[in-house]
Design a protein around this nucleic acid. Structure first.
Length: 523
RNA sequence: GGCGGUGUAGCUCAGUUGGCAGAGCAAGCGGCUCAUAAUCGCUGUGUCGCCGGUUCGAGUCCGGCCACCGCUACCA
């Protein structure tokens, strides 16, 4: 039986349009999942929408529609973006409508309660509606919320609290002994120092009145609803049907090799501290990996609606194409740090790597195969140093790519694949098949060498098609079609056992010339 | 204030245990014509943030400083 794993994106609030940051997280997660699946790991991939937020209520009020109408409409913008980006989800969970989520969040609460980790307490604090969180006096800037620059309101009510303090030592131990891996290491250090500084119990409910009657009811107390973050975090296990003991939960969570959450740097604490503590309380396995990405800036500025510099990823995909946007996000952006977006850079990457690099390589090889050998891959003739060098590069690129993806470094992985693209283009020029073809009439050596060259090129490109699949699923598929590869029958040795990757023998394979993969963008 | 990180070619970045500074892109020159005006080869440039120290030798180790960033604390 193949090993199994779980991977999730975070679930965004749907009070506004998706932006480029959402696209980044979607594409990163999808690339990781495609790599894992191709490596033979049966991976369950979850995304969804966080709908039980007061922000949604307030956004709906501003628009004069019901909260239900707002979330039902907006969630489609996110699912649409996921489709446009060719994100291969197993399940999309909606926290305000999915019965598995509502039942699951409720049951999760009961579990934590029976563990003795939930208690009621009178609470008074300064609450920012925008952040949906309480602030200490000292955290405010001139008495205003540091995020929203609004005055928080003084709220006094009885809430339920979660005994987070009880889990301090266990969480610290889990991080330090590697049971819970936080990537990159600098983020793990931040979490460690935060946990070491002492964990206070956290408020996990709101009065129904303050929540505007929107949210998941606290079991046994109809006057309280769950704090949105508490129900939201349980989406990951709820998506697997945990509360009704679905087989999927056992297979993809309890018995999974890896349980991975891909998150933005702003929500580390929820995922690396609160959520593991909740799982410990409920007696469930904690995540194995928290992968933390940065934010996308535009000309160095944080993207925000007030600055008016929001980039609509939907428009970007419509303008440049799914693969172009995916490749740009994965090959040009650091997986962990912030990155700066510009259209010039996207076009430069596209023309350089995709059109002139990979696209032109496939085009010239397919063209020569058809021109010189009637579109049928010949058996290899004698093999020399250029061939050995090419196959060495194939092996090392394959191995380096897989290693980088295991570290969640998609940028490094793409760079190593493009080492092979460059080497292959150079190999074409070294052998110069057009010269061999001219001489082939008079001497058999040239004809045999031409066979060798075309044979090696066909095999290399087939492997390239497999290697690029996590980044460029569309192009991968189009090459596969032109190369007559069975769908889903990609050579598993390339990713599953990279060191063993070699040249497949495609002798006799019919190769078509595919339509231009990546037309140049003329500026 | 504390802890941590970053600072390397015009741009984006790589540089294991200290041993002559690297890649890609951009730029210049040359080659080729299979290919998407593509591709291949060659070429240059660096006070490795600054100052000092250890060492035969420091981008790398140590101390100090500057700039930017992250987490966190405190005072108002």
């Amino acid at each position: 039986m193949p090993s199994t794993s779980f991977l999730s994106t975070t679930i965004p609030y749907v009070n506004a349009y998706p932006h480029l940051g959402h696209a980044l997280e979607y594409v990163q997660s999808d690339a990781y999942v495609r790599h894992m699946r191709r490596s033979g790991v049966d991976t369950f991939f979850v995304s969804g929408s966080d709908e039980n937020s007061l922000k949604n209520v307030l956004a709906a009020e501003r628009l004069g529609i019901t909260t239900r109408e707002l979330v039902d409409t907006n969630v489609q913008r996110f699912t649409h973006l996921l489709e446009l980006l060719d994100v291969d989800l197993s399940y999309f969970i909606r926290t305000s409508v999915d019965p598995d989520h509502i039942d699951g969040a409720t049951e999760f609460w009961r579990r934590m309660e029976s563990a003795g980790d939930i208690y009621a307490k009178e609470y008074e604090g300064l609450y920012c509606v925008g952040c949906e969180q309480f602030y200490a006096e000292s955290e405010l800037v001139d008495g205003l919320c540091p995020e929203h620059h609004t005055r928080p309101e003084l709220v006094r009510e009885q809430n339920y609290f979660f005994r987070l303090s009880r889990y301090q030592d266990r969480i610290l131990a889990a991080i330090e002994n590697g049971e819970l891996s936080i990537v990159p290491a600098s983020r793990a250090n931040e979490v460690i120092s935060f946990v070491r500084s002492g964990l206070a119990d956290i408020s996990i409910s709101r009065s129904r009145r303050r929540a505007r009657d929107w949210g998941i009811t606290v079991p046994g107390d109809p006057e309280q609803v769950m704090y949105v973050w508490i129900d939201a975090l349980t989406n990951y296990t709820n998506a697997l049907g945990w509360s009704r003991d679905d087989e999927r939960f056992r297979r993809y969570w309890t018995e999974a090799t890896r349980r991975v959450h891909v998150v933005g740097k702003g929500v580390i604490r929820f995922h690396a501290v609160y959520w593991p503590a909740m799982l410990m309380s409920a007696g469930l396995p904690i995540p194995t990996d928290i992968v933390v990405h940065g934010y996308i800036t535009l000309s160095g500025q944080k993207i925000s609606k007030s600055l008016g510099n929001v980039i609509d990823p939907t428009e970007l995909v419509q303008q440049f194409g799914t693969d172009a946007v995916r490749y740009f996000l994965l090959a040009d952006f650091s997986p962990f740090g912030d990155g700066d977006f510009s259209e010039e850079r996207l076009i430069s990457r596209y023309n350089g790597d995709l059109a002139n690099g990979l696209g032109n390589l496939v085009s010239r090889v397919a063209s020569m195969m058809n021109r010189y050998r009637g579109g049928v891959v010949p058996a290899a003739g004698p093999v020399g140093d250029p061939e050995r060098e090419l196959v060495d590069q194939l092996r090392s690129s394959s191995r380096a790519m897989a290693e980088a993806m295991e570290r969640y470094d998609h940028r490094e992985a793409a760079a190593r694949v493009w080492d092979l693209v460059r080497r292959t283009n150079a190999y074409v020029d070294e052998r110069a098949p057009w010269h061999l073809a001219k001489a082939a009439g008079e001497n058999e050596e040239s004809a045999a060498l031409l066979d060798t060259t075309l044979h090696h090129l066909a095999g290399t490109i087939q492997q390239l098609a497999t290697m690029i699949a996590p980044f460029l699923p569309g192009a991968s598929e189009r090459i596969a079609q032109a190369w007559g590869i069975d769908r889903g029958a990609a050579d598993p040795t390339v990713a599953g056992d990279p060191a063993a990757a070699g040249l497949p023998d495609l002798t006799g394979r019919r190769i078509e010339k595919p339509p231009t993969l990546f037309p140049r963008i003329e500026v």
